Simulated scan of single mutants.
Amino acid sequence: MERRTFLKLTSALALAGVAPSVFATAKEPFTVYGAPALPSLTIAVAGLQGQLAKQREVILKVWRNPDHLRAGIASGEFKVMMSPSNVGVNLRNQGQKVGMINILTNGITQLVSKKPLNSPEELPNKKVIIPFKNDMPDIVFRALLKQRGINAERVDITYAAAPAEAVSLFLSKEFDAVFVPEPLASACILKGKKMGVEVVRSFNFGQAWAEAFNSKPVTPNAGIIADVDFYHAHAEEFEIFHQDLQNALVWVKNNAQSAAEIGTNYMPAPAPAIANAIPHANLTVAKGSEMKEEIMRFYEIILRYNPKLLGGKLPTDDFFLC
């Protein structure tokens, strides 16, 4: 870790009264590969203040994009990783020995626009930019359009390689809306103010989803998956880490400013945007088995929309590791 990053982290934690035990004596590493999105903040704080850090050196590394994530899993380098919730199923159905540990957000992707959009029915004839074609933001956006009877051909969708690129293009070009995960949605609003571009939050995506699919306003977008053999060899440590994550989430919600300072080391957004994003990211910490009904319902929707995104079939019960 660079000295500058170390100092930023320890300063933020000192202000919050958190002991950075992760920087103690050298221990065997427990590395989690996180996404460049807000649930990685929960992982970072868990690693810094949790009980597992007393036994292992808990390290958070952030993957660049879903292709980087898939490559890391395929090579065997990544053993514990936050991922879009469809990716683990897809890889499992392709023969990779991975399974689900938990869900860390019930809906992290938000639609922001230059003029208010009060419902999905206002999207036709609008120009929308979305990161990660055929991955989670694209999946849920198109599924919602289809379920509500909106012809996707009438929505002018452009794809970006990453959320930060999507935000930059949205602000500088003639786009009406951008659909990005937090904290990039909040960062977009703040950056727009500096550029003289008004950006507002549009319709509540979770509520629109619930109305469309007659379900709870829950889209379990992402969580932690793990190599099956690694999980079984370290099951007790995963139990400790689960409690660390739950405690970290409470701390993050109660200490948004200090948490945001930590988050700047892992996400392409400034601290004010990260702090603003926390109430909008639907953060949670729930074992896969605890949310199995909602997760399977979500997978059924994805399977109906595009079976390839799950590798052609729903997961079996043993996909849920804990």
Rank of each mutant, 00 (worst) to 15 (best):
T42D: 15
M136I: 12
T284Y: 02
E174H: 12
I278K: 02
F23Q: 00
V62E: 03
A286R: 05
I150C: 13
L111W: 03
N221L: 13
K173N: 10
Y231P: 14
A210Y: 02
Q96S: 12
T219N: 14
I240W: 02
V250C: 07
L9W: 01
K146I: 08
V285D: 04
P131V: 04
L111E: 01
L321D: 01
A271E: 03
K146L: 11
L184M: 11
V112H: 03
A222Q: 01
S289V: 14
P120Q: 10
A143E: 03
V18P: 11
E174C: 11
M195Q: 08
I43N: 05
Q257T: 13
L60R: 01
S119I: 07
A35W: 01
R70E: 02
F6I: 14
G192V: 07
V89P: 10
A44F: 08
P84L: 06
M136G: 04
T5S: 14
G206M: 05
E153Y: 07
A235G: 14
P163M: 02
Y305A: 12
V285I: 10
R201L: 14
L104W: 00
D135C: 13
E261G: 15
P315L: 07
N204M: 04
D244Q: 05
E236F: 08
P183Q: 01
G50M: 05
P220G: 15
G107A: 07
